[in-house]
Design a protein around this nucleic acid. Sequence first.
DNA 1: CCACAGCCTAAGCGCTTGCTCAGCCCCAAG
DNA 2: CTTGGGGCTGAGCAAGCGCTTAGGCTGTGG
Lengths: 204, 204
Amino acid sequence: MDAKHTHSEEWAEVTPDAARRLVTAAVAAFAERGYHATTTRDIAGRAGMSPAALYIHYRTKEELLYRISSVGHRLALDILRRERDRDGTPAERLARAVRAFVRWHAEHHTTARVVQYELGALGEEHYTEIVELRRDTDAAVRAIVEDGVATGDFDVPDVRGTTLAVLSLCIDVARWFNAEGKRTPDEVGELYADLVLRMVGHTG
Amino acid sequence: MDAKHTHSEEWAEVTPDAARRLVTAAVAAFAERGYHATTTRDIAGRAGMSPAALYIHYRTKEELLYRISSVGHRLALDILRRERDRDGTPAERLARAVRAFVRWHAEHHTTARVVQYELGALGEEHYTEIVELRRDTDAAVRAIVEDGVATGDFDVPDVRGTTLAVLSLCIDVARWFNAEGKRTPDEVGELYADLVLRMVGHTG
DNA sequence: CCACAGCCTAAGCGCTTGCTCAGCCCCAAG
DNA sequence: CTTGGGGCTGAGCAAGCGCTTAGGCTGTGG
């Protein structure tokens, strides 16, 4: 997993070029209509190829979804882990983590939508693999919350429940965020960082 | 819209009996696999009928989804409006509204999942009709938040954004709630009411 | 020049989909 | 008993699905 995750380089690790074009086409289609309502012909068409070309790079349509889900989950997890491991007070680290995590979900809301809401379409083996990554995501946020409780900076009666709520809140940004709306990803990140600090009872 | 919305009477307004059996069968199937992955044969089978019987009560599969979505949205909206209009301080009213709204989403999480996450499969006319109900839902919560700001009980810099976040948080319960999990709907409602009061800066 | 591997397409196979239709059963009204 | 209509089924249609196959380009190494 590389350092830069800018918008244009989101799928840089997917090669060759044709395979990457298929991934971006599939993300657009899955986000718009959902996995099951998307046809392989639609994906191939958006990537400028014939339907058969898809099967040179991916064995099935589900494998395409798995690639997207796998890369997406790893990107999101890396964002949280990076902020968890940085210096600063628990409040600073939690605020930074939420800001970055929410910004990613807003900026890449099409990718995030597929990653977060199309899990159920994965095959059994792929699904259990992804669930593992989601447990790690939960653990990363919980670690920061627990640090804040230990130092006395946070007042959290139910750490697991609050962690779940924080993640749920941030993830759901992918569902409602609209690029044509009036809020920028930065603004949403800022608002949510403030709300989450309130949720953990940070008095500042 | 009637007073009681207990588990067994959720679809009491749908008649005749066969039409109601189809609705409950469709809710189960849509919640499990999603609208597009569910076949009319599966729905009819769960309701104990032949595939053709579905079309005596509903013109299309989409109309079944619309019925579910319409009834579900109205039930959820009524819960919020009832608490909005009751007596009490803004904090009490907001806490009660969140408790009841979250409890409904947890208890009826299969219905809620369909209602909240399968909107996109609705036809254009039905979709715009449902979006109207969702605007009303947002307005109901916002009214309570605004009351709290007016009385000085709440500290909310961004009313629209905070309202959006509160609703997003509550709605997402339908996605992750698991009936076999360790939290009861009541416990989740209690936790969430507390978290939401923190989000609106209620000092108590 | 040829050989060959990688990438691609046109055509289409087998199957499932949403939905239809002719006709049956059952029971209340005449 | 006859009539008629609502609720239902078995059979099946047209369309669209995921995916496969046979074969054609194109560029590189010998």
